[in-house]
């Protein structure tokens, strides 16, 4: 699973590079616009270590942001699963906020909190929180009637049991949603770093952009892709292990 994800990314990345090279040589673009493969290789080699730690820094913020989002989304999703006023209100609010580009709110956070870890974390968490929340509300508010019926009619249903039943029955969906939110968390962190931050791969991309250094940008993209693929692969592997442990059927 992990290897397949990395391989898929390598294929996509290689295709992108080939496309750039076709563009470069067919339009006879200068090395300043699109560097030659050798330039990309040399630049990549030179900055790989620095960018590796920058990406690791970004990923660690994204992971923490994602964990916060998952916890928040579960808390709110569980609270909003009933068709009460509060539940309906939270659902409607989540749908509306989801439709709003969170990135546009990022400057306000920078103005209020300045650049740094907390700001990056909040933006990462915000960007992956709302899609997660909507999925989790959807899953938690859908009764599993065939299982819940007995507990309801015998007055044995407790909210913990209800949540456990719904989470168990939708385990694959939950794993897919959480794994998918990785990309959002990473994108959120990079956007935050790109707007204003003093570290992280987004910050490095911003510097490379000011220098119009496509080799550096491509190296950063390569590392981001590899890191996301590995992390998503690990999440899916962990999800599969949990599923097997719980005997979740496919």
């Amino acid at each position: 699973m992990l290897a397949r994800r990395v391989l898929q990314f390598l294929i996509v990345f290689a295709s992108g590079l080939i496309f750039l090279m076709i563009l470069k040589y067919s339009l006879t673009l200068s090395d300043y616009v699109i560097p030659s493969p050798l330039d990309i290789w040399h630049t990549g080699k030179d900055i790989l270590t620095v960018y590796f730690f920058d990406t690791l820094n970004t990923l660690s913020v994204a992971i923490i942001g994602q964990i916060i989002s998952v916890f928040l989304a579960f808390s709110v999703g569980i609270g909003a699963r009933k068709s009460t006023f509060a539940g309906s209100f939270i659902k409607a609010a989540a749908y509306n906020i989801q439709a709003y580009p969170i990135v546009a709110v990022a400057p306000i956070i920078f103005i209020l909190l300045g650049d740094g870890f907390i700001t990056r974390l909040i933006i990462a968490a915000m960007i992956c929180y709302f899609p997660l929340l909507l999925s989790i509300i959807g899953i938690m508010s859908e009764p599993v009637t065939d299982i819940e019926h007995f507990y309801n009619v015998t007055s044995r249903m407790r909210w913990q049991l209800e949540v456990k039943i719904r989470a168990f029955e939708n385990m694959h969906k939950l794993i897919t949603v959480i794994s998918g939110s990785t990309t959002l968390a990473m994108a959120g962190t990079i956007v935050a770093e790109f707007i204003a931050a003093d570290r992280g791969i987004g910050h490095s991309i911003r510097i490379a952009l000011y220098q119009s250094d496509l080799s550096r940008i491509l190296t950063a993209l390569f590392l981001i892709g590899i890191f996301i693929s590995v992390y998503q692969g690990m999440l899916e592997w962990a999800g599969e292990r949990i599923g097997n442990r719980w005997h979740v059927s496919n």
Binding site: I147, H149, V153, T154
Partner: peptide, 12 residues
Amino acid sequence: LYSYNQERLPGW
């Protein structure tokens, strides 16, 4: 009480 034949027990 009403029971029907498609009811399931939790899987864990």
